[in-house]
Amino acid sequence: MSTARTSSRFTDALAQIGACGIFLFRIFAAVPRSLRYFKETIRQIWFVGAMSLTIIMTCGLFIGAVLGLQLYDVLSRFGSAAMSGTVVALALYRELGPVVTALLFAGRAGTSITAEVGLMRATDQIAAMEMMAVDPLAYVVAPRFLAGIVAMPALVCIFNALAILGAHVVCVSWLGLDNGTFWSNMTASVDVWTDVINGVWKSVAFGAVCTLIASFQGYTTAPTSEGVAYATTRTVVFSSIATLALDFVMTAFLM
């Protein structure tokens, strides 16, 4: 009995993943058509990216500060407090920056995409567009998808920069690490390509995955308020899982 239920939940999950994959291909097919609505993409970058700046910047500052605090404490036990800045930078660029930003993004922008698209579905706006011979995939979904791909790397870079600033404030201004030591150790060990740019690639992938899941959940929601609520929840859950799983895969195979 319970195995039957488990297996049916398993097949349900598989079917969801499959439907999501097909949806991705439909988005890809719609991207060339969506170039006609380029202004819409710009507008979405504003909503998805610029509107997320506050949370991203605040969280970046605090995460950098707390990382600096913890690492300074831990590393000074080994007499390597000078490496604090380096470790903060490496941890941020390679993992924390892209992953934390993606999780915040899923909560901030992903949910709003799902709720928006879901309500458009529930109130027949999607059907109305189809009736006006406007492809909702090209007009509604693809611009959000592109916006996610563009906005996420920018957000990650901004997040990282503020986190470094936060770590600098804590380590140098507060804990008294030498300013020159902080920077020179960092510049000696951090590489542009393997650390910074790889993190940017990760963030591009996370941006695509988060907006794909968010718009898929919104587009296929049950057309009721309850359906939209469930879809929003699923967006956060699935985006987080997908982000972390993809992060592992990308780290294992690309870095």
Partner: peptide
Amino acid sequence: LGFAALAYLATQTTSV
């Protein structure tokens, strides 16, 4: 702003 942040990270905090 995103590009500025990337440029800052790439030029000021790495071996570049």
